[in-house]
Design a protein around this nucleic acid. Structure first.
Lengths: 251, 251
DNA sequence: ACGGCCGTTCCCGTTCAATGGGAAGCGAGT
DNA sequence: ACTCGCTTCCCATTGAACGGGAACGGCCGT
């Protein structure tokens, strides 16, 4: 739309521009953005200027562009992610203080695991998850919980689709995966050794809201040798606390 | 622009739509959005639909609209706020564990104080600041620090402009404020009793990056009767730690 | 059953903002 | 002095966005 010869709306283009930014790529020139977003140079410059005017993007000491504070503000205030995070943070801190490993909170978003909070201990091991980062549903302990408790149709879609392995031990066989998910629903927890990285074990539990609906997954990443019993207990207790907290906030 | 009779660009309208959301107003109908954003009904519906298609907005169980997870994701990954927050969080947790009050991190944004993180103790007192919330620069301890260390022109602009009181004790006299700011630059700390709320005292210190530039303010909110000495010490130590952490991340 | 209210969806002729190619300006690197 | 890449300005073209209006459908009070 928007008079573009390529037939895209302005909105789509704005999203594509925002998509060119990432954890690694935090500042870029307007020309770079145009190239990455597939926009003609003059168009990219004009749109970037417009976004800067609105505060969605910032220009640093002349030239380069980065995500604007205003965008951050608009996206956060009143967002579901912030509410959930605020309710969960105290409990996550408690878990993290006891386990001294990585503690994460994730939600289901567009058939993927989206991590909305992560706490790490200085001495904890590797962990590829990032805040605002994604992993496939079948290839992370949090994702497995979300998939197990998600709607039927989602499960079928994911089980049907291509299941790529993130590590050699990622479960990609539909039948095995189906049994694994049934087990998660039965036990209310998943212990997933080597699913994301060979050296670590993910432990995840569902976080429920109000009358039972699973809205998030709480997980810990432990070195593979560590026993998982304590983590399961801590996560279960924390998840119960979070559920109570988000329930209480909605009278 | 964008063919609208009112002469606004699509980008401006999108921002106005996003602005209709807030901490209190987290879900609304498309018609509500249109009214609040001053858009014709059919236009509002079309634009909301477009934003939903792009994932910037989400539709809940039919009808109502809220901010989309995708927007949250795009705004956060690669944002300055997230980096700063990640570096600061461990130190903020430490401060909060010792003081058991409110601990906040704020940056300067568009001549206002923008709070990007806040930790609260269950037993702590009142605190009107919110994550992604704003306060005037002259009417919050964090803001005073940012104003004191901000560029000359900013200071003159704020001192000239109307200085509204948030509480009866907010300093609104330009001369007094100027002396207060000079004191903050000298001491590297501000203790502001009753500036935001009569019952509490704000204590704030600057967070510096690399070679001295102040990039944020770290603050605590204490009940007015509490001595501030310990808070000053804790905040100073934490700010030093944060500075080292963000310096280390940029080799 | 009825009618008003309101959110939503669909339609469609009008129109002007957005578009993008091109050229020129500006630094930095060689 | 030259190249290369980022940026800014210009401007004729055009079709996407616009928005008024009509119609649908759910809800509520009578």
């Amino acid at each position: 739309m928007a008079n573009s010869t390529s037939g895209e709306s302005v909105t789509e283009r704005i999203v594509r521009i925002l998509e060119t930014f990432g954890t690694d790529r935090t500042v870029q020139t307007a020309a770079e953005i145009g190239r990455r977003a597939g926009l003609p140079s003059s168009t990219a410059h004009r749109m970037v200027a417009e976004l800067v005017d609105c505060g969605l993007l910032d220009r640093d000491e002349e030239q380069r562009v980065r995500l604007g504070m205003r965008l951050w503000e608009l996206a956060l205030r009143g967002s579901r992610a912030l509410r959930l995070r605020q309710a969960a943070l105290p409990f996550m801190e408690h878990v993290q203080a006891r386990l001294r490993e990585h503690t994460q909170l994730a939600v289901l978003e567009n058939d993927e695991t989206l991590f909305i909070e992560r706490l790490s201990h200085p001495h904890a091991g590797a962990n590829i998850t990032r805040i605002a980062g994604r992993l496939p549903l079948h290839a992370s302990s949090s994702g497995l919980v979300l998939l197990a408790h998600g709607p039927e149709e989602l499960r079928e879609r994911v089980l049907a689709g291509p299941l790529e392995a993130v590590s050699p031990e990622t479960v990609t066989d539909p039948a095995r995966l189906r049994r694994l998910l049934a087990g998660i629903r039965r036990d209310g927890v998943v212990v997933a050794p080597g699913t994301v990285e060979a050296v670590s074990t993910g432990v995840a539990v569902p976080v429920r809201e109000g009358r039972g609906e699973v809205v998030a997954a709480l997980s810990a990443v432990l070195p593979r040798a560590t026993p998982t019993g304590r983590a399961v207990e801590e996560l279960r207790a924390a998840a119960a606390g979070i559920s109570a907290a988000i329930g209480a906030h909605r009278p």
